[in-house]
Design a protein around this nucleic acid. Sequence first.
DNA 1: GTCTATAATATGATAGAC
DNA 2: GTCTATCATATTATAGAC
Lengths: 194, 194
Amino acid sequence: MSETGRRLLEAATAAFAAKGFHGTTTRDIATGAGVTPGAVYVHHRSKEELLFQISRHGHEATLDLLRSTLDQAPDDPVEQLRALMFEFARWEAVHHTTARIVNYELQALSPEHLADVTALRRDLRLLVRGLVERGQAAGVFTVSDAGLAVVTLISLCIDIARWFSDDGEWTAEQVAAGVSEAGLRLVGVVPPSR
Amino acid sequence: MSETGRRLLEAATAAFAAKGFHGTTTRDIATGAGVTPGAVYVHHRSKEELLFQISRHGHEATLDLLRSTLDQAPDDPVEQLRALMFEFARWEAVHHTTARIVNYELQALSPEHLADVTALRRDLRLLVRGLVERGQAAGVFTVSDAGLAVVTLISLCIDIARWFSDDGEWTAEQVAAGVSEAGLRLVGVVPPSR
DNA sequence: GTCTATAATATGATAGAC
DNA sequence: GTCTATCATATTATAGAC
């Protein structure tokens, strides 16, 4: 991808995150990248194609991060969940602009593109589901409904993208640490008192 | 408000929740209410005014619900948090269309209208904050950062509006019960084992 | 109060010069 | 590859008949 093509992607990410896909015009994107509207279509097929690229890349980056986190974590559900929640939460905080598009602009995707990212979202859910079930089987997680626990753990991370701000009260790492511990408590792992 | 005025509000709620404010046209709203585009402006000043009415009413309803829930709960932080989280979570699930607009369409409000609802959101945060601090003072909640705990508790409820579906795996009450228990665990209240 | 018609503007995307 | 100019359409909102 050319330098201008990349700048257009970045401008589109900033605009879509701030104003939503339908609230953003191709002129906004062009201006944000320092070119005129006509130049957009040399680098990208359409506005929706820009959205799809941002959304797909964001979904793939999240899924890759969680997979490699699980790969590198010790063979212990508690430590795996701690690491998974920390990295997931940190990703949503650090990349909150991209994450907002990933989480809140699904409805603006074309049916085909939506099907693509929906498959990635299902993979992510199954990954967390497997971990929760291993923790249950090992007797270290106590949850009454594993499916609801999975949704709630993911919820805890996703919603960070909605409220996190770069100049807010906490750093991405502080949020990640807090949410990671919250996730452990949620599945019944009692933290050492301090 | 006239019958048609109300039907327009309902159609706008459904459309804004499904496609976002900017993804919805005044024709969508008119058609959804069974009238022609011109009739919209007899009942509502503008599209943004419709959004504001939905958003303000949704915020006020949530805040009223949480206030009356706290008023009626026993004088015990654990039971108060259990009740608060249950009612908050249930509201987000039952009213997930309105809640989506409340939580995700803030950026489409005019600056004046945004200031209005931002004040209501701050009141809600302070209400939860007070409860968490009373639980800390009573020694029944153990959280390392009260502010982050407040954000996380609210997060748990808000994000329900994003994923809840009327024909999903769980009823609003099941979700509310799960999220309510999650909230208690999050602040360090260990549930009785079963 | 609702309709049809339309004004005024904005929007996604393309054409053709450079 | 970028620009200016523009096409075709869509959009919010209003005017005036009924």
